[in-house]
Each structure stands twice: as C-alpha cells, then as structure tokens.
Design a protein around this nucleic acid. Sequence first.
RNA 1: GCGGAUAUGGCGUAAUUGGUAGCCGCGCUAGACUUAGGAUCUAGUGGCGAAAGCCGUAACGGUUCGAGUCCGUUUAUCCGCACCA
Length: 964
Amino acid sequence: MDYNFREIEPKWQRFWREKGVYHVENEDGRPHFYVLDMFPYPSGAGLHVGHPLGYIASDIFARYKRLNGFNVLHPMGYDAYGLPAEQYAIQTGQHPAITTEKNIARYREQLDKIGFSFDWDREVRTCDPQYYKWTQWTFIQLFNHYYDNQAQKARPISELCERFAKQGSEGLDAACTEHLDFTADEWNSWDEYGRQHVLMNYRLAYLADIPVNWCPELGTVLANDEVVNGLSVRGGYPVERKLMRQWSLRITAYAQRLVDGLEKVEYSDSLKEIQRNWIGRSEGAAVWFPLDVPATSVDKPTALYMGQVDPLPVPSFEIFTTRPDTIFGVTFMVLCPEHELIEQITTPEQRNEVMAYVTWAKNRSERERQAEVKKVSGVFTGAYAVNPLTEEKIPIWVSDYVLAGYGTGAIMAVPAHDSRDFAFAKHFNLPIRQVVAPSIDETSDPNTWEESMDAKSGVSVNSGFITGMKVKDAMKAVIDKVDEMGIGHKTINYRLRDAIFSRQRYWGEPFPIYYKNDMPYTLPEECLPLRLPEVKEFKPTSTGEPPLGHATKWAWDEANRTVVENSKIDNKTVFPLELSTMPGFAGSSGYYLRYMDPRNDERYFSEKAVEYWQNVDLYVGGSEHGTGHMMYARFWNKFLFDIGYAVKDEPFKKLINQGMIQGRSNFVYRSKEDNNLFISKNIKGREHNTVPIHVDINIVDNDILDIEKFRQWRPEFADARFELEDGKYVCGWEVEKMSKSMYNVQNPDDLVDRYGADTLRLYEMFLGPVEQAKPWDTNGIEGVFRFIRKLWKLYVGDDDQLLVDDSEADKKDLKTINQAIKKVTDDIERFSFNTSVSTFMITVNELTASKCKSRTALEPLTVLIAPFAPHIAEELWHRLGHEGTVCAAEWPNCDESLLVEDTFNYPVSFNGKMRFTIELPAGATQDEALAAVKAHNVGQKWLDGKEPKKVIFVPKKIINIVIG
RNA sequence: GCGGAUAUGGCGUAAUUGGUAGCCGCGCUAGACUUAGGAUCUAGUGGCGAAAGCCGUAACGGUUCGAGUCCGUUUAUCCGCACCA
C-alpha cells in the first residue's frame, strides 16, 4: 500500500497542535537555542513557494536542535502594518484591519499545511495594540535619550539638562543635528520652549526639517523606492523634493558601533560588505579654508565660525577631504547649491548668475540629478579662498556635484587626483596640478591626461614640506600640520543618514506624541498603547493632513490623561496629537525580543526571559532586508542594550540569507499569420513567424503543454490548433520574477495537495543551496516524491503491515546508516540541506537493495529524517511502537568505528604518469605505505631499481611516488 | 564607475576543503512486467573512440608530486552601491 500522505500528514499536524508539542517555556534545564525567521507581511496574494524556503530551512535546524536536547524558541508572527492594505482600503473602503486579518488567516492556513514547528502561542502582530504599545514605548525612550560620544552609549536627556544647567554646552561630545555653543547662564535664562528647542538637537528621536519626496496629488511623502523617474509608482503623479518637518531617528549616532558590531556576528561576507558600504565610513580631515574677501562684503562674519572651537582671525569655512595629502594640488573650491555661505560671498557681478544656478539646482528632482550625473554644471561665485598651506588665492565655485548632506557641503577640489574635480576642471578650463606621482621624478603634464590619478599610492610631488613622502605618510603630516595651525583635524565621516520616521499614512503605529505650544511631548508611558483611531476615510485630509486627521476622537486631554474628540482642542488642557504614523520598519525592529515574552503587559519583555534567551542564535531571511531591516533592528537593539533592556549588543548571532526563488515562466508560440495556430518549441523555425505568449505553469508539466486545459484556460484559445513534435506540444521557458502577470506563480498549497508537505519540504531543500538564488522548477519533484514512497516501503508492506523486525542489522547496513548519521549531521551544521537530501536517497536505495529490515538500522533513520520530513517520520516512529512524538527522540550518535575499512585500495601514481592500485591496512603509516610500494614493485620493475625519493601519503586517499 | 560574488554533463547540483571530477535527482536510451503507461522495476548515460585509450571543471598562464579547489590576467553572468569628496 502506498504512502497516504493525504491522511497521515493532517493527522500528525492535528496531534502536534492538540498535544502542544512545540510549546516552549522560558525556563528549562536544557540549553537554549533561538531560531528565528523574518516574519512575513501578509499580502493578499498569499504565500508562494519562495516564502517557505527559508522557513523550511530554519524549521529543519530548529527540529535538529530539539533532537539534540536543546530548548528551542522558534516563533512566527506577522509584519502586519503596511502599504498594500492601506491602498486597498483607499480603493475599496474596506478597513485595513479586516483585510489584514483575512490575509493572516490565509497565511496561517498555508503555513500549517507545511508542518512547521512554530510555537504559535507566541505569535505577534505588529498591528496589535498589545504589541505596538512597546513600539511606542521604545519611541518614547529614544525621544528621552541622547547619545554620548565619549561613553559610546545612550544616556537620559535628564542628565543632559543637569549638565546644561551647570556648565552649558561646554565640553559636550554628543550626537547632534548641529553644534551649539551656549553657557549655563544662557541655558538657565531660556524658557521651556527655548530649552525644548535645544534638546531636540540631541534627542535620538527628533523632529526636524528634512528634504522628502512629496507627492501633492497623493498627499503623502513617498519612500525612494516608491518613486521612479520623478513620478509616483502608484498613479504616476509628479513627486517633488520638499523640506518638511519630520520625525527622524538618530541612527547616525550608532554608525561606528554598527560597523564594529559586524566583527562579532556571523553574516555572509557580502552582506557585511553591503552594510559597511551603506554606513560608508571614511577617514579624512576637516580643514578650514579662510576667505579672501574684504570683511565688509560679509554681513555676519561670526556665522562663519560655526563649529569652530576657537574663532579664527579671518572668516573661514570648513571642508571635508579623505585626501589631505593632495592639499597642495587644490586649484578651486566647490560649495553645494544649498550652502549658506553662497548668499554672503557671491560678488555683485556674479549674483544673478549664481542665484539662477542655485534656484535651478534646488528645483531639480533627485531623479533628474541622478540621471544626469555625467553632466557637468556649476557657476563661479566671484569669491576666493586662500589655501592655508600655500597662501594661494583660489576661486570658489558652486556646483550640484557637491552634496549638501555629506561632510560639510563644501570641498577642496584637486582635479589631478579626483575624477569629478577633473571633469569639472576640464569643463570650465580650470588649472590642473599634479601633486601625486608613482615616484618623485615620474611627473607629467596633467593637462594632457585622459583621466585623473585617483589611486592612493605613490609619493607626493610639488607639495612643499610633504614632497617625497608616501601618500599615507603625507596624509598624516598634513593632518598634523593643520592641527598645529589650529585650522583642521582628523575626522571621520559616514554616508549613513538619519532614518526618517514619519509617514503620512493611516495603517501604521500612531506616535505617542502631543503638541503643546507647537512643541512635541510624549504621552505618559502608562497611557500606552495609544490606539490607532477609527477613520471614515483613509486618504489624506483635504487640508493636507495625514489620514489620522479624519479621526474624531483624536486629541490629548492632559488633565484627564485620555484621548478625546479633537473639536475640544484648546491648547490649554486639550492638545493636538501627532497625525503621522510610524514607518514599516518600526514594528519589525524589535519583534525578536518580544517573542521571548510576548504576553507581558508590564514590560516589553521580562528581564528573566531575555536573560534566558539572550539573543537570536540563528536568523533566516531574504537578503532584500540586508540593509533596511537589519540596520534598523541592530540599531534598535543597541539602543535597548544601552538602556539596560537587551542583554546583548547585537541582536542576531548568525544570519543566513536564503536566495530568492525566481519564477520559471512557460511560453507557447503563436503564429503571426494564424492566431489560432501554436507551434511547438523545437519546430518553430525561421519559416514560422511566431510570438511567445506566457502560459500558466499550472497547465504545463515538464514543459509539455496540456492541450485540453490550454483550450479551456482562456476563451480565445478555445479553438487553438497545434503543430506538435513527437505528438507533444513542448513549451519554451525563461527565468523571470515570480509574478501573477507572468502566470508563473507556484502556490505551495497545490504542491502539498499533490505530493504532500514532506515532499515539498524535501524538494525545496533539494533544489540547491539555501543561500543561492534559483528559479523554481517543479520538474524534479517526482524524484523526491518517489523517494518518500521508497522510504515508506522500506518500513511498511503492501498489506500495511510493519516489515521492521528486531533483528540485528548486518555490518554493511550498520555502516550505511552510520555514514548517513555522520553526513547528515555535518550537513545540517553547515546548513547544506541539499546534500542531506541526497544522502537520504542514497541510504534508502542501499537499505532497499540489501533488503534491510532490522530496527537497529531503521530506527535511527527515522529520527535522522524527522527534521526534513516530520510527518512520515512521526507515522513511522509510531508504527515502530513509540508512544511519544518523534520530536522528543534523541539524535542518533555515529559509531565511527563502523566507518573504518579493514583495507583500502589506494590508487598510486608514479611521477604523475603511471597509476595502479595498492591495498593497505586501515590507518597505515608512511613507512608501511613505503614498504607496500616496494613490495608491490617486486617483479614489476617500474621503479627500475631506483629507491623512491619521497612517498607522499595521505591516509585513506592516495599515494604518490617521486623518484630522483 | 566602485564593491561583492559566481562560472563543473542536456538541466538542478556534488566532490570528505589540495588527493581517483561528475555523488544524488531530473531528463534521455534500452529492456522487463503490463490491455495500456505520464505506474513500477532493471541496466546505461561528460566528450571522442570499435577497443585499448585520449581529452575534459569559462579562457590563458603560474605554484605543487598532485589543482574544480590556491595565485595572476581575461571573459561572461548575477547582486549591492552609485557625484559620498
């Protein structure tokens, strides 16, 4: 009787659920292990076969760890806030909570069919008030902390207030939006509003004017990926860059720790590199260049001293460079169009031209700018700066190739050694001066160069006191020099920007913030969660306010500590609440911690729980979250670590990025002359002018089209005629993104219905290495299905009787099973599940061939396969007479002694040419090998009387003989 | 442009990490059992060759007794970042 997965799989899924087999406690004598999947966004489309790939891999690992005696935390939940549900709501009026609930139910149903070992008692949903209460709570903590650069740690804002009252800003080294200088007296003289204004400069969650993608038509800010070519992806409306007051998280404060932390975790090298690039740390120098202008033409010279500890005797401005060694090659300076100095230094003759350029540059969309990177544009201000080391007068230009958001928005241009400066100099015919050369006398005329010499190698030339020094030494010498002159210092710049945290959206976490006197204040913690209000409309309001503006009960009554109707806002006791919501990454940044103690109402998670679980041992998910989610989550965790909540600095010890599953689309070829004629792939030649048409992969099997189903598929194909090859219609195929419009979405439910969950699980693993991107291809699934049936037949006879007996397995079978134990154990530890599946196939083939029926071999095999195919393993385990679940069994030990051969046949090669085989006892030594070679030579003469000079002997492998 | 990877039969892949390349599966070929086969079982399947054998891991070169694996150059594909001074 064949294996009846349709009956057996649901039976055990029910058993696991009813017995609470996968329920996990936070206390347990066993060692702990935390296996986490990136939780899904429950979209309306349901799961496709790409989603479970990572879940299956992590489930195998979780089950393996359980069998090895670990208490395993393996939870699942939903990242339930997000755009699609809201867009759907705008179109249909259906509340996002309802569609989300429906989608979650569908996801759960699909997940359950695959037989995962999640502890569903710990499920979290980011849109659940009991969950987002803690997202809001964390936001309040971020608001109430600043970052102490000296201690490299977040500290309470209250400490900052005390400090300001005592010593003002003097000596403060904190992450901030801009450097401020004030005394204790000044601080103490300011009113509440003034102080709050200053504190905002330091808070880790802060409100500031930020340039954003604003889409007036949609009435919302859009993320970069929602904008293509200056138009919104949805609707195609124009998007402009606009300065708006937005919440941001000061993730830049943690830039260094986010870089350093990568040393401590196991992520793939490529992902670490991506994160390092994203943070973009670069070491260099800050240098102040004095202006060469009559003091009278500068309105407020003091404004130019911003950020300087000691004011310089002349007006100056700060630049950042990673190549201080090239300072002798500066031939012009460039300011970004947004630079505040432009207004002050531009000469009257140049004013019109400069202002026109600045206006043009500011109105250019980010997209336009990026598309025209190669185009050089800029304008001369008429003003000059002085090179502090050469005292040369150098012109100051404005150009949009200098970015406002990086460094100081001003650069010293060294056209000979920077490709962008080079292009600019060529375009405007500015001088180019070589100051770095391969060696001191290998200079050439840079005006003849095709491109600049950017490499950080060689020696300085034409460079005053650093001439002849190597680049590295020259950098240090220049930094020391400017430091000594009091006009510069060594500094580090990061490309990372603070994270914009507001969204003009409905379906997200409300900010626990109200405004008093236009200044934001946090709600009292005990009033959390601040629930998302009901609204009649999900679109932004007509006044441009976010959708929450539609809510009628939506204001903060400070005296009664409650949310009330906004008509009562009087700004005395009833204040307006923040109307934006938090972005998608808010809820997903700390969910792994909440799983440790998901029903706790008093705390994010108890100290006991986090002490027990520590952090995530293994995190599995797609690399598309490699920067966004991973960076925010690491930041979130580091902050919670600083304030004593998390116990580990890094949230995820090890990360596996599962490869993306692409779709494998099928095509039919329609004749151009005859719209009802379809020609099989291999006979559509030149004489047939054909058009490829996507065809639903569900009516194609092994690239063979099911003609009847095709005729029924769409009405226009009802009368289709075919030109066949070998009586079949062969479809073409191509790898594309898995998407509905390409009819290549493979739904896991269909495969479970047809082959069973175990087959799907094994097949997804068998497809190739977990980390590798690969197209979905169902063509090989039959082989895995066949394997499952062979496995079944090894244990169960045609009449459903158990074939396994209590006899002792023979040595050959024991060897087979022990080889499997060793191989599978190694493979799981290396996350190489595809080879484990091969090992199972080999093992079953061998045991079937040897007609092995003994329990001593088959029982360990059942446990071995349980992580991969838990349903059939559970059924066999019970048929073998066990009461409890196979999940509680013990991982079999490999008896290595059974793997050792008595003798080995060694291939021997002689000077790389001749090859023969020699038999040696197991564990033979070099001397024994040499002796065996000599003995073998007797009568064979291949050594021709010569002594072997060297015998290279690798036990169990091969011998090579070298002679003189 | 910069950075990171990858390259092995018709296809997905494997190779004990420097030691007999191609395990396992798909597909294909032949056969058996069958009224039938898109079921099952058996055998074969890198290329050339009748065979012995020769060649073969993107290309070329190097290190080594020995290279798919290490080093160099080139090519192709994929991914990430992209005026970041």
